[in-house]
Computed example of a mutant assay.
Amino acid sequence: MTTRLRSAVFVAALVRRVFSRGDFAAVEVKGAEEAGAIFVRQIFRDGRESLHAPAPQSLLAPEDRDSRLFETRLDRADAATVAEAIARERRFDGDLWVVAVEADEIGDIIPFAGGEPEDDGFFRR
Rank of each mutant, 00 (worst) to 15 (best):
M1G: 13
T2N: 07
T2D: 07
T2S: 12
R4Y: 08
R4W: 02
L5T: 05
R6W: 13
R6G: 07
R6M: 14
A8Y: 07
V9G: 01
V9K: 12
V9M: 10
F10N: 11
A12P: 05
R16M: 10
R16A: 15
R17F: 09
R17H: 07
V18K: 12
S20G: 01
R21Q: 15
G22Y: 05
D23E: 14
D23H: 09
A25I: 00
A26Y: 02
V27Q: 01
V29S: 09
V29G: 02
G31K: 01
E34D: 13
E34H: 07
E34V: 13
G36R: 05
A37V: 07
I38N: 05
I38A: 07
F39H: 15
V40Y: 06
I43Y: 05
I43N: 05
R45Q: 14
R45T: 13
R48S: 14
S50K: 05
S50G: 04
L51Y: 06
H52W: 03
H52L: 15
A53K: 00
A55N: 02
Q57C: 03
Q57G: 09
S58N: 05
S58D: 11
L59G: 03
L60W: 03
A61H: 14
A61C: 09
A61M: 12
A61N: 04
E63I: 13
D64H: 15
D64I: 06
D64F: 10
R65P: 02
D66N: 10
S67P: 02
R68Q: 13
R68M: 13
L69M: 11
E71I: 15
R73Y: 03
L74S: 02
R76Q: 14
A77V: 13
A77Y: 10
D78H: 08
D78L: 03
A79K: 09
A79P: 04
A79R: 13
A80L: 12
T81M: 11
T81C: 11
T81K: 10
E84Q: 10
E84Y: 01
E84N: 12
E84P: 00
A85I: 01
A85E: 12
I86H: 00
I86G: 03
A87E: 15
A87F: 08
A87C: 14
R90S: 10
R91Y: 11
R91N: 15
D93S: 11
L96V: 11
W97T: 00
W97Y: 15
V99F: 02
A100V: 06
A100C: 11
A100L: 08
V101L: 08
V101Y: 02
V101K: 01
E102C: 03
D104K: 04
I106K: 03
I106L: 11
G107M: 01
D108W: 02
D108E: 11
I110V: 15
F112C: 02
G114C: 14
E116R: 14
E116K: 14
P117G: 10
D119A: 14
D119I: 14
G121L: 05
G121N: 04
F122E: 09
F122P: 00
R125Y: 07
